Deep mutational scan, measured.
Amino acid sequence: SGWQYDTQCSLAGVGIEMGDWQEVWDENTGCYYYWNTQTNEVTWELPQYLATQVQGLQHYQP
């Protein structure tokens, strides 16, 4: 899939279920990364769990 979410945008106002994931701001890069509080996994790309929800939002315009 060529769909890419801009990680400089916060998910805070989007209104999706974050589940075990937390969004963390990284000052050095000026982007958010994502931290799974259960598994301690850290990812710079939007986790599939969140990406599926964001893509499903009608009002979200990339």
Rank of each mutant, 00 (worst) to 15 (best):
Q53W: 02
S1Y: 02
Q55K: 09
Q38S: 12
T52V: 12
G15F: 02
P62K: 15
A12F: 04
L11I: 11
E41K: 11
D6A: 05
N28G: 14
L50N: 00
G56Q: 14
Q53T: 02
N28H: 07
Q38K: 15
M18W: 13
Y32R: 01
Q48T: 13
Q4C: 11
P62I: 07
P62H: 14
G2A: 12
Q8C: 08
G13F: 10
C9V: 15
D20K: 06
Q48M: 14
Q22R: 13
V14F: 08
Q55N: 08
Q53E: 02
W3S: 14
V14L: 11
N40C: 03
Y34L: 01
Q48P: 15
L46N: 02
Y32D: 00
Y5N: 04
L57V: 11
G2W: 07
Q8R: 13
Q58L: 05
N36Y: 00
N40A: 11
Y60M: 15
G19D: 05
C31V: 10
D6Y: 02
D26L: 03
A12N: 05
G56K: 13
Q61T: 15
Y49H: 14
W21V: 00
E27H: 15
V24P: 00
Q61G: 12
N40Q: 11
N40V: 03
P62V: 04
Q58T: 09
V24S: 07
V54L: 10
V24R: 09
W44A: 07
Y34S: 00
I16Q: 02
W25L: 10
V42M: 14
E17Y: 00
S10M: 03
T29E: 15
Y32K: 00
V42T: 14
V14Y: 15
Q8Y: 07
Q38E: 11
P47T: 00
A12T: 04
D6N: 12
V54S: 02
E45W: 02
Y49G: 09
Q38W: 08
Y32S: 03
Q22T: 09
N28K: 14
G30E: 11
N28R: 11
V54F: 08
E45G: 06
Q4E: 12
T43Q: 12
Q4I: 15
G30K: 14
S1P: 01
N28E: 11
G13P: 11
H59Y: 06
Q58G: 11
G13I: 04
Q8H: 13
W35N: 12
Y5V: 03
S1I: 07
L46R: 04
Q8G: 14
V14T: 11
Y60E: 14
C31M: 10
V14Q: 14
E45K: 11
Y33P: 02
N36L: 00
E17K: 13
Q4K: 15
S10T: 10
V42C: 07
V54T: 04
Y5A: 04
E17I: 05
P47F: 00
T52R: 13
V14E: 12
G15R: 11
Q22L: 06
V14P: 01
W35V: 10
M18S: 02
G15A: 15
V14H: 10
P62L: 12
P47Q: 00
T7E: 04
Y60V: 14
N40I: 02
N28D: 12
T43E: 11
S10R: 05
E41M: 05
Q55L: 08
C31R: 15
Q4T: 15
L57T: 11
I16W: 02
C31P: 01
W25G: 03
E17R: 10
T52P: 03
L50F: 01
T7Y: 08
T39V: 00
N36Q: 10
E23W: 00
L50K: 01
A12V: 11
G56I: 04
Q48G: 12
N40T: 10
Y33W: 03
V42L: 08
I16H: 01
W35I: 14
L57Y: 06
Y34E: 01
T39A: 04
T43C: 12
T39C: 06
E27F: 06
E27K: 14
V14K: 14
G13L: 08
Y5P: 03
T29S: 14
Q48H: 09
P47D: 00
E27C: 08
T43Y: 05
S1R: 07
A12L: 06
G19C: 00
E23Y: 02
T29F: 11
V54A: 05
Q55C: 14
L46Y: 11
E27D: 14
I16N: 02
E23I: 01
W35L: 10
W3R: 08
L46T: 07
N40Y: 03
M18K: 02
M18V: 02
W3L: 12
W35K: 15
D6R: 09
S10H: 02
T37C: 14
A12D: 07
Y60L: 14
Q55Y: 04
G56F: 04
S1C: 11
L46A: 04
G30S: 13
T43F: 05
N28T: 09
L50G: 01
H59G: 12
Q8F: 07
S10F: 01
Q53D: 06
G2H: 15
Q48I: 07
W3Q: 15
W44Q: 11
W21F: 06
L57S: 11
Q8D: 03
Q61C: 08
W25V: 05
Q4P: 02
G2C: 06
W35Y: 06
Q53N: 01
Q4V: 15
L57Q: 13
C31L: 08
V54P: 01
Y49W: 07
W21C: 01
